[in-house]
Design a protein around this nucleic acid. Structure first.
Length: 196
DNA sequence: CACTAGATTTTCT
DNA sequence: GAAAATCTAGTGG
């Protein structure tokens, strides 16, 4: 399997487009030289910065959100509900806020390692939720700000054989505002999607 | 299977 | 001080 990182130009676009185009590509987590975890992205959500009331960046720049206004292709990781992390990748040109939340991946490589980290019994429950996948890939605040366009501990890789699949667009999950937009995308029929 | 509550701490008001 | 881009265990049908 060839794991070539996606270029920064891929992320330097409209957030909704990036969210949709990321489906089918790979999320790569390098623990060390011998341990590489790979998952196929099957579910994402778009958070469009300033004009999106559900986005953390809608209320302007704060110590936490400034990363969303920065360079595209950078990891934005935040802590939520006192116990969980969520992983995003920054989109739009520098100066414009935007990010794509990874909601679910399909485990491809390093499944046993993920099972240990998650203490899960069924593969199906390993990565089918935004905080489940950060637990399975050992993603914490330490990786906040990581450049995901170069090979490193955490990056996004191109899948040349994505194949054909149908993309479903629905309302986003777990938020109370901005529900008029269908900015959640997932691969139709994939068993690792977090929720119908 | 559907629904409810509890865990727990960063972040901003 | 309240809310938060969630998950899990527990209850009841």
């Amino acid at each position: 399997m060839i794991l070539k990182p996606l270029k920064r130009e891929f992320f330097e676009r409209n957030t909704v487009e990036v969210a949709r185009d990321l489906l089918g590509h790979f999320l790569v987590r390098k623990i060390d030289e011998n341990t590489i975890l790979v998952g196929k992205i099957v579910e994402t959500e778009a958070y469009c910065g300033k004009n999106d009331p559900a986005s953390h960046a809608s209320r302007g720049v704060t110590p936490r959100t400034k990363i969303m206004f920065g360079k595209p292709g950078i990891a934005y990781i935040y802590f939520i509900y006192g116990m969980y992390y969520c992983l995003n990748v920054v989109t739009e040109p520098e100066g414009t806020a935007g990010a794509v939340l990874f909601r679910a991946i399909e485990p491809i490589k390093g499944i046993e390692y993920m099972m240990k980290l998650r203490n899960a019994k069924r593969i199906k429950d390993l990565t089918n939720g935004p905080s489940k996948l950060t637990l399975a890939l050992d993603i914490t605040k330490d990786l906040n700000g990581t450049d995901m366009t170069v090979i490193g501990p955490l990056y996004l890789a191109e899948n040349k054989n994505k194949g054909n699949f149908e993309i479903v667009a629905t309302k986003r999950i777990g938020i109370k505002v901005g529900l008029d937009k269908d900015w959640r995308f997932y691969i139709k029929g994939n068993p690792f999607v977090s929720k119908k």
